[in-house]
């Protein structure tokens, strides 16, 4: 084989291998969470804080309870001291952990502060944990805000069954596009093809950085909020 032919062969092999990689690497979700959001606006009409509710699947809830040695009291509720003990159990204080909540305002990612006001309850055998995240800088409600809920590692499969509720402003329009795993995988394959095409267009094969596509956010539940008369 000539050098060129070998190069071409190596490229095809790489394309195929890259296409195969997600098959092995893609994580299966092991925890299923129904997320709910409340958007809190301050007196100036700015979005200042988000209250997050995570409702865990019954299996993972049972695992957490048993692992902490907690049995529900009568009525399937948690004793107050158990609820207090569990509060914040699901927060990872590693700064790299973004809490599966992503805010984009007019194309810019808005940072959120570390959470506060943790609480945990048990409802119908499902753990419901809540916390609040303040925006590092409040955003005018008039700006269109896109909120996404997803775990980039897809260890947790997040769903958002209900659109977010707004507090402090009556004039907000909220749109929810529920998670679409079909779209997610389609978009993923498309993104991968695109990235590969880019990669192959570049002359050098292995010097280029490897293709990475963010699987997590594609097809993730997405909410759009805008307040006021505008638009």
């Amino acid at each position: 084989m000539t050098r060129r032919a070998m190069n071409r062969f190596a490229r095809y092999l790489l394309v195929l291998a890259l296409s195969l990689a997600p098959l092995g690497a893609a994580a299966h979700p092991h925890v299923f969470i129904d997320a709910g959001l409340r958007l809190i606006y301050d007196d100036g009409g700015k979005l200042s804080e988000i209250e997050v509710e995570w409702r865990y699947d019954a299996f993972y809830s049972l695992l957490i309870l048993e692992d902490h040695g907690i049995r529900p009291v009568a009525g399937g509720r948690l004793a107050d001291e158990d609820a207090a003990r569990l509060a914040g159990f699901d927060w990872d204080w590693d700064p790299a952990f973004e809490g599966a909540l992503y805010l984009t305002v007019e194309g810019r990612r808005m940072p959120l502060q570390q959470p506060r006001s943790f609480s945990v309850a048990l409802e119908d055998g499902q753990i419901v944990s809540r916390h609040r995240r303040a925006l590092s800088a409040p955003v005018p409600g008039e700006a269109e805000t896109i909120i996404q809920v997803y775990d980039p590692e897809f260890y947790v499969d997040f769903s958002v069954p209900q659109p977010p509720v707004t507090f402090g402003r009556p004039d907000c329009r909220v749109g929810l596009r529920p998670g679409d795993s079909y779209a997610a995988a389609d978009a993923y394959a498309a993104a991968l093809r695109e990235a590969l095409a880019r990669e192959l267009a570049a002359a050098s094969l292995l010097d280029e950085e490897m293709v990475t596509v963010d699987i997590g956010s594609v097809g993730a539940p997405e909410m759009r909020v805008a307040c006021g008369a505008g638009r």
Partner: peptide, 28 residues
């Protein structure tokens, strides 16, 4: 490769979720 099987993945995840919730009930 073209994402055409993504429906199966979505169906599988939904099935797994349901099985997981029912398992909790069976264990109880």
């Amino acid at each position: 490769l073209s994402g055409g099987l993504s429906g199966i993945a979505a169906w599988a995840a939904a099935g797994q979720r349901q099985a997981q919730n029912l398992m909790a009930g069976a264990l109880q």
